[in-house]
């Protein structure tokens, strides 16, 4: 188990290297941050000075080398535009994104799995069909459009929910969270719903397919034949067996929720990491872009690991060994 985790970590270090090199080269290819950030009134000498100050006058390989040296010392560089360490900027924004993604996951799981189960148990009833039709909508409507519609309906027309921002936050162990205040909760609702929509639909389909498959299995038929109630069969036999794919998808999707919360964060002016990334790309704030992607990568690596470990817990047939794959 431990060697398994260690090997995973070593693999991910390699991925981190490749990734950082790619991002470095990519940002370099896009353009010159100084051309965007420089004071328009600056003269040639100051433009040169700014380029030097950011280390952009050096050859790319040297810039990358300096970055690697710094990274080993735990320093991913200072943001060009905010004059604070890039990691600091990202960590400052991380709670907002995590809170949004977690809330979205909770919404998706809390509604997606039961509805999927119902749709799987009664595939031809009107309720099953309605759920499936809803999930198709959730899949196919673009996030930004749904977000704007939510704002139009709930903020502009009905005036129930605030359209943007994070609202009031309170600190829990030094981490600002908004779900503990009424104001914060109201602000959280729409973005979380918007972000949850896709995943919610995904879970419905996954649960439904799993349920239908499980229902036709021999063990379910035997259980029924044995005289167990349908309720008990579903709860004990069906649910347990369909959990593995659901857990995998939920965990992996949690990573993508964080990474792709960008659209939702932009629409609802939610001060998370995704919005930071967009802002940074616009001004080619390389330290922030690189640091963001590295952190997201680490997150995915971590989630994958968690999924693998969770398998073993959920399904006793899976044994994770230090040998073999």
């Amino acid at each position: 188990m431990i060697s398994f985790a260690l090997r995973r970590l070593l693999q991910s270090v390699l991925v981190l290297f490749v990734m950082s090199a790619l991002v470095f080269a990519g940002v370099y290819a896009i353009g010159d941050p100084v051309a965007i950030l420089i004071n328009p009134q600056a003269d040639q000498a100051e433009i040169a000075a700014a380029t030097r100050a950011l280390g952009l006058d050096q050859p790319l390989w040297l810039q990358y080398w300096n970055f690697i040296i710094g990274a080993f010392a735990g320093d991913l560089g200072k943001s060009f535009s905010a004059n604070v360490p890039a990691v600091h900027l990202i960590l400052q924004r991380m709670p907002a994104t995590l809170e949004l993604a977690l809330t979205a996951t909770v919404i998706a799981v809390a509604f997606g799995i039961p509805l999927g189960l119902v749709a799987g148990l009664k595939p031809v009833s009107w309720i099953g069909r309605t759920i499936m039709a809803g999930s198709i909508l959730g899949f196919s409507l673009p996030t930004f459009w749904v977000g704007l519609m939510l704002i139009m309906v709930f903020s502009v027309w009905l005036g129930w929910l605030p359209p943007t921002g994070r609202g009031e936050t309170v600190e829990v162990f030094g981490v600002p969270v908004s779900f503990l205040t009424r104001d914060g909760l109201l602000h959280l609702l729409m973005p979380a719903l918007n972000l949850a929509l896709f995943k919610f639909s995904l879970l419905i389909r996954l649960t439904r397919a799993g349920t239908r498959e499980a229902l036709s299995q021999d063990y379910v038929r035997f259980a029924r034949a044995k005289g167990l109630s349908m309720e008990r069969v579903v709860r004990i036999h069906v649910l347990k067996n369909i959990m593995i794919p659901i857990v995998t998808v939920t965990a992996l999707e949690f990573g993508s929720l964080i990474a792709f919360a960008i659209v939702t964060e932009t629409i609802f002016a939610w001060p998370g990491m995704g919005k930071l990334l967009i802002d940074s790309i616009n001004v080619l704030d390389r330290p922030v872009i690189v640091a963001y992607l590295l952190i997201i990568l680490l997150l995915f690596v971590f989630l994958n690991l968690v999924v693998d470990l969770a398998y073993a817990v959920l399904d006793p047939r899976v044994r994770i060994s230090g040998h073999g794959t």
């Binding site: 941050p33 100084v34 950030l37 420089i38 004071n39 009134q41 600056a42 003269d43 100051e46 000075a49 700014a50 100050a53 950011l54 200072k78 060009f80 535009s81 004059n83």
Partner: peptide
């Protein structure tokens, strides 16, 4: 100021 990509030195 150090590390500024476009400061106020001009002025």
């Amino acid at each position: 100021m150090t590390g500024s990509p476009g400061g106020f030195a001009t002025y």
